[in-house]
Design a protein around this nucleic acid. Sequence first.
DNA 1: GTTGGCTGCCC
DNA 2: ATTCTGC
DNA 3: GCAGAATGGGCAGCCAAC
Length: 822
Amino acid sequence: METSAKQTFQAGPSKAVPRQSPEVIDVDLLDDSAQYTEPGSSQHAGKSTFKLAAHSPEVSATSASSIPNARDHIVATRQSLATTTEVSVNPQYPPLDVDPVAYPLDDCPWKTTSAPYSFLAHALATLSGTRSRIAIMNVLTNALRTVIKFHPASLRSTLYLLSNTLSPPYSTVELGLGPSVLSKAIQDVSGLTASTLRRLYNSTGDPGDVAFEAKSTVRTLIPHPPLLITGVYDAMLKIANSKGTGAAKSKQAVVQKLLVAAKGEEVRYLVRTLSQNLRVGAVRTSILSALARAMVLTPPSTLELSSDSPFYVSSDQLSGIKPIAASPKKKSVDRARDDLHEKFLCAEAMVKKAYVLHPNYDHIADALVEAGLGGLPERLPLTVGVPLLPTLGSPARSLEEVYGLLGSQAFTAEFKYDGQRAQIHASRRSSGSNVVKIFSRHLEDMTDKASLQPLLSYPDVVSLVDDMLSNYERVDSFILDAEIVAVDPADGSLRSFQELSNRARRDVKLDDVKVTVSVFAFDLMYLNGDILLEKPFRLRRTLLRTVLPSWTPERMSAARLHHVQSCESSEGRESVEQFWQEAVNSRSEGLMIKLLDSGEVNENSREGKSRRKPLPATYEPDKRTAAWLKLKKDYVSGLGDSLDLVPIGAWHGNGRKAQWWSPILLAVWDPHAGKLVAVCKCMSGFSDAFYKELREKYPEDSDTCSRQPQGLYDILTGGLKPEVYFKPQEVWEIRGADVTVSPVSVAALGLVSAARGLSLRFPRFIKVREDKKIENASTPEFLANVYHSQQGKGEHGGGVDDGDLVDVDVDESEVEEQYESD
DNA sequence: GTTGGCTGCCC
DNA sequence: ATTCTGC
DNA sequence: GCAGAATGGGCAGCCAAC
């Protein structure tokens, strides 16, 4: 089998991309169905992935200048192919980006009964071609209308494929497929070598584009039946469900089957879907809005609608809407369009509300098809056992900013614990077996028994909740919001996030729990059958504190229930300032500031003019508003850990950063060894303009950027091997939240741990330190000192004395002293 | 049986 | 998680 | 201001390779 894979495309020395006229490879391979239906086949042995591909030394011929714009090149290639190959065989669909009022829906645009995948690929390709939100909404809306009208049974699969998910977040289905298997499959189907694919990948930054290019070199002799939307979705499920020995092979077999059957643009979006990075400018929110609009315009034919419905428009009304004027001189009055817009807004609110309370596309699709928009509240209620989307906090940079936004309105400042967000559901059952569920921030099920994935599982928290149900007589059911934190079993003092992550995550028995935790509850969304979301936070909190008081089980290592430590704004600004200091000096991330009663925000526009806008203190699923402000110490200048690091290498960026270096590898300066030692990668904080300059300062294969380290400095990278090395010549200020003990970094190796180096949590670029030379960059000792000062900050304060070490603006001479003192 | 790459999740 | 960008 | 995109460190668990 292996020998039949004639590789027409060698890892050629001078070609970055295949030539415009594709050569034909041995197609027998592709049409041999045994090739992709036998999971046991060993044909893939020895092939390497994109990542592992050994690059031939001749690659240097692929200089950036020989391909001024790789993206343009790809587009040109695609167009030239479109007239000659199977791309033109695809059905021609009507344009989707038109005003929905003008979109033709009289004739079914496909010949199959079930909706074909090519239609979805057509929609995705159109989405990719625009950044206009209006066009994106039009495409999504018209595509969904078409599916609803001509094959509503495909709606579920369409929603999952559009949103690039497989199942509700709280179910345990996952693809278990990464770039490794995907790239092997593309190799096998296209016959291209790993290094050719690797080079394509470097220039396009998108595995889907690579697959598209690779497949365009292949001509299939035997026509394949069209892929269907439901078929592709079912294949994804099949991939997800294959587990155990041989799983990788059978996943790859399914992928190859899909790739062989896919034509033209289908290939690109299939692979983007499989790599779980669709990148078409539309995710959940837009999809839900479009779904609502589609239902307004094109309700399923099975529904009986009353003419005065607040959601639907009659065809008479629709035909009364004028097309949008091409010249935007003045907007002509169009009552019918305004009315449609109103209905859109109303329907969008309904669909989004249904989703945030009950995030399940299966249930939404079924409810819409069977009962219409009006059926949503009843069919997707807030349910104990089904997670709702959590309220999110918006960042605040200082206490001044907090007071500026909230003025004199009552708020509470709560400790922001460094643990894991948990939404806890409980319901007492008379039969004895209670319903207890724990969900993560992204709504994954973390309850022990139900979880088949490697997630943190919390039998100790489940046991705590069972205790609560049996001991709190006024409580039958609740949903609460909390942070689970690792604690010292002896005194309950807080431990680090890293310790929490050390917990086993699967099939954990109560007695096996090694890291004790506390549950710090901070909100209550549901109690004894009452939905509390619309109640002000003050009331929710009072209920939480009175009905679910703290609880410490007998057993010392069991999970405990606490309420978060807080300080009220009514205690005065000084107390709040003091509480903030306490948070800074303890093992907490900072504060969460929460509005207690519904009020207003001050929105500071320029020149001191401030507008006030209503600010509810209700529980707002999936919203980031000023009602919850997170004040983290590492946001506040002068408080976070800030390091001066040297850029020493980089990787090729992906997607929108495909033409740039990203991420960048950063190093500390070790004056004793006279070496630069890699600490971490960084991709955040750079503006696009900075990326462009950087690409000019470090052009690929130049004297400042090459595949091997060059220049005067020795470089030590440990487990952080970049694709290219920069000539070390500048120093950047990099901020992080914490210094971490790292399995890959060798920076400060031996100073904190004999086997592990140090790295940085949440690294981001702040600015170039024009005033610093390599020799003035941060040292391993400095890194180790920052780490030690963090450790000093337990529950009991501490760390105040050595707090100087984490100051951003450490005096130049102080830094020098540190070097000397070692 | 052990090691190490891959994956998906937490922050 | 953080950050930047286009609409 | 929202929505989307690109990617950080680090962990356990799984599976393939040795």
